[in-house]
């Protein structure tokens, strides 16, 4: 166990944000789910007792008759904002005094950095470069992430859970978002920071970064496993596999969705549903491809003269 290596990575100035991000995300996750639990208990209580539901103020925070429903911004909100600004300034001051921003040697196109890492917030995308070609990892995926985020309000037809934390009323949407944010975004950043070493090779935390390590890995393409050799055959085979994934995946997911979430199924229009399913299946395809690569050493599924997937 090379603690020194781990310490070096964790305390590299530009990695401090990630070292900070992890506890921050966990803390806020805990904060959110504690409130969600409280609200869910309240909802269960109110659903069991319709008479109470008519009179209850419907928050977990106390409210007594005679209390003002609203408070003045001055001072009740402004003091919070002022306090937040002071605390952030203090943190920044201490951080800036104790730790210097990184500055390497002058830019030199003839001397490649190894590993050459993107800024930490793009490490998830850089990690994707292992499994996908640059046009997917660097262009299509970011575009789909942005589009996917933007359509969320238009495909989430669930009117419940607006303005309060809840888990029970929004299991599916919260589960999906947490999968995307925590597993696909945050944990990929952590892998990119703590695990990827020279040559973008996999070094477990505490393993010494060996710049001379070589890995003998034979990556195959999926058509090769099936003994398909002609280019035309590979193209058609890949199209069938990828198309089949979306067709069968869509069929299975729809069957599940209809049974598990009949209300949402009824509320959603065909277009809303199709967009959701497409984004959902694309997102799920990501870990599937990663798994294929890591377990079966499969590089491409679909090979054409113009692009490979």
């Amino acid at each position: 166990m090379n603690w020194h290596q781990l310490w070096t990575i964790a305390t590299t100035p530009d990695n401090i944000p990630i070292t900070a991000l992890l506890p921050l995300v966990l803390f806020y996750l805990w904060l959110a789910f504690r409130q969600a639990k409280g609200n869910d208990e309240l909802i269960a209580q109110l659903e069991a007792d319709p008479a109470l539901a008519k009179t209850h103020h419907r928050k977990t925070w106390p409210f007594r008759p005679g209390w003002q429903k609203e408070v003045h911004v001055w001072p009740f909100l402004l003091r919070m904002e002022f306090l937040a600004a002071i605390i952030v300034t203090a943190i920044l001051m201490v951080w800036s005094i104790t730790m210097s921003a990184p500055l390497e040697e002058p830019a030199n196109p003839n001397l490649t950095m190894n590993p050459a890492k993107a800024p930490w917030y793009f490490l998830g995308l850089q990690e994707m470069l292992v499994y996908f070609d640059p046009w997917i990892a660097g262009v299509v995926m970011p575009t789909l992430i942005i589009i996917g985020l933007m359509v969320i309000p238009y495909i989430d037809t669930n009117p419940l859970g607006s303005g309060y934390y809840t888990l029970k009323q929004r299991k599916f949407s919260i589960g999906t978002f947490c999968f995307g944010f925590l597993i696909l975004w945050v944990s990929m950043i952590i892998i990119g920071t703590f695990i990827r070493g020279p040559g973008w090779q996999w070094f477990w935390p505490g393993q010494t970064w060996d710049h001379n390590r070589l890995i003998y890995e034979v990556n195959r393409d999926l058509p090769d496993l099936f003994g398909i050799t002609s280019n035309l055959g590979k193209g058609i085979f890949g199209a069938i596999v990828v198309g089949g994934y979306f067709a069968i995946g869509g069929f299975v997911m729809t069957a599940l969705f209809r049974r598990k979430m009949p209300r949402d199924w009824r509320r959603m229009s065909l277009l809303q549903y199709q967009i959701m399913m497409f984004l959902m299946l694309t997102m799920v395809a990501l870990p599937i491809k990663m798994l294929l690569r890591l377990s079966l050493h499969i590089k491409y599924v679909w090979i054409t003269p113009w692009f490979n997937v």
């Binding site: 806020y28 969600a36 985020l149 309000p153 669930n158 859970g161 303005g163 934390y165 929004r170």
Partner: peptide, 12 residues
């Protein structure tokens, strides 16, 4: 963004 999602604040 995570908070806004978890509180469903993007809804109508």
């Amino acid at each position: 963004m995570f908070r806004v999602f978890l509180t469903g604040s993007y809804k109508k």
